Amino acid sequence: MKIQESAENYLEAILVLSNQNGTVRSIDIAAYLQFSKPSVSRAMSLLRQNGYAEMDKDGLITLTPKGLEIAERVYERHRLLSTWLVSLGVSPDTAAEDACRMEHVISRESFDKIKEHVARYQSGGEA
């Protein structure tokens, strides 16, 4: 299931905003991602057409199971990579920016190994 990085960013944003606010509208996504309203509107249309998101009559956006699966995967990568980079001494802002880029291109194998390494490190094992 490979989708474009921009779609992954939108799905992740919907997940984060939904967790923070309970409901999500296009205007919330535009503010969160610092994108124009027309850009968000176009992206939401494409996400709906491809079965990743839904919008009700009141403009509330939700993720479909397929969209939620992708959003959760990307968000897990983002959180873990950010935490890992900070633990290596990278500033939190830089770590978040780098994690945002890395989360889209890292292989499952590499991510799983970093995840294992972080788990060992956090449990007191060797780094």
Rank of each mutant, 00 (worst) to 15 (best):
Y10N: 04
Y10A: 05
Y10C: 05
Y10Q: 04
L11H: 02
E12G: 09
A13N: 09
A13R: 05
A13Y: 02
A13D: 06
I14M: 08
I14E: 03
L15T: 04
V16R: 11
V16I: 15
V16M: 09
V16G: 06
L17Y: 07
L17H: 08
S18P: 11
S18L: 14
N19C: 06
N19T: 08
N19D: 13
N21I: 09
N21M: 13
N21F: 14
T23G: 08
V24M: 04
V24H: 03
V24P: 03
S26F: 04
I27A: 13
I27R: 12
I27E: 12
D28C: 05
D28G: 06
I29G: 04
A30R: 09
A30P: 09
A30W: 05
A31E: 15
Y32L: 06
Y32M: 06
L33D: 08
L33Y: 12
Q34P: 15
Q34D: 15
Q34K: 15
Q34L: 15
F35G: 06
F35A: 10
F35N: 10
S36G: 13
K37D: 13
K37L: 13
K37E: 14
K37M: 13
P38N: 03
P38E: 03
P38C: 02
S39Y: 09
S39D: 07
S39W: 08
V40A: 03
V40K: 01
S41N: 11
S41H: 12
S41V: 06
R42Q: 07
A43H: 04
L47R: 01
L47Y: 01
R48P: 01
R48Q: 12
Q49D: 09
Q49N: 08
N50L: 04
N50C: 02
N50K: 12
G51L: 00
G51P: 00
A53R: 01
E54H: 07
M55F: 07
M55V: 15
D56Y: 03
D56K: 04
D56P: 06
D58M: 07
D58A: 09
D58N: 11
D58W: 07
G59T: 08
I61A: 04
T62S: 14
L63K: 00
L63H: 01
L63F: 00
L63W: 00
P65E: 05
P65F: 03
P65G: 04
K66D: 12
K66M: 07
K66Q: 12
K66R: 12
G67F: 00
L68N: 11
L68C: 05
E69V: 04
E69N: 08
A71W: 00
A71D: 00
E72D: 05
E72H: 11
R73A: 09
R73N: 11
V74H: 05
V74M: 13
Y75M: 14
Y75D: 15
Y75T: 14
E76G: 06
H78N: 13
H78A: 07
R79Y: 13
L80P: 02
